[in-house]
Amino acid sequence: MHISDGVLPIGVVIGSGIASLALAAWSVRRTDSEDLPKVAVVTASFFVTSLIHVPLGPTSVHLLIPGLVGILLGPSSFLAILLGLLLQSLLFQFGGLTALGANALMMGVPALLCGLLFNKLRGSTQKQHVIVGGLVGGGGTLLSAALLALLLFSGGEDFLGVAKLALVAHLPVFLIEGLISAFTISFLYRVKPELLNQRFSALQQG
């Protein structure tokens, strides 16, 4: 779920915008220009994925995959998520123009953490990859939901009800995302394990 324009108080809008800009600048510096097309690929895939709905009982939920983006891109993931959200807002009005900073923080910070954790813990066996991938993928979504609730709550105590609802609505999504991340990592491990290495350029030279 994205925060739309007009929800957050102006102080939070500006603050999260500045924080997002700083993180994005750092992310750009950490991105090799060799890797740009690949970051663009994950950005576009992130965009497409968020249009995929998974049935859940009588309704359906759409995927967020901040964790997977982090696993695939590492430090560049913040940039990918910021641009993915920008394009979603430009093309489909998911999220908003002024709330872009807040939305990018909400998805991008978990992505960065997930990338870091996955790289530290993944080990070398498929089993460990899958378990860590699942936990990280689910955890990323959980953290996103927590940040969403926190941001909504920044509007004052009047927003407590909405924040709680947003958090509860994400609980089933967190399970689904964990499982899907695990399956995706398992697939990539078997089919194209080099995608799981975050530094592409180092890989090309080798």
Partner: peptide, 21 residues
């Protein structure tokens, strides 16, 4: 709403990544 669906979706995503790359 089943684990099989999620497995298929996981493979679908993986395939999308591989093909796109």
């Amino acid at each position: 709403t089943s684990t099989e669906t999620l497995q298929v979706m996981g493979n679908f995503l993986g395939m999308l990544f591989v093909r796109s790359f």
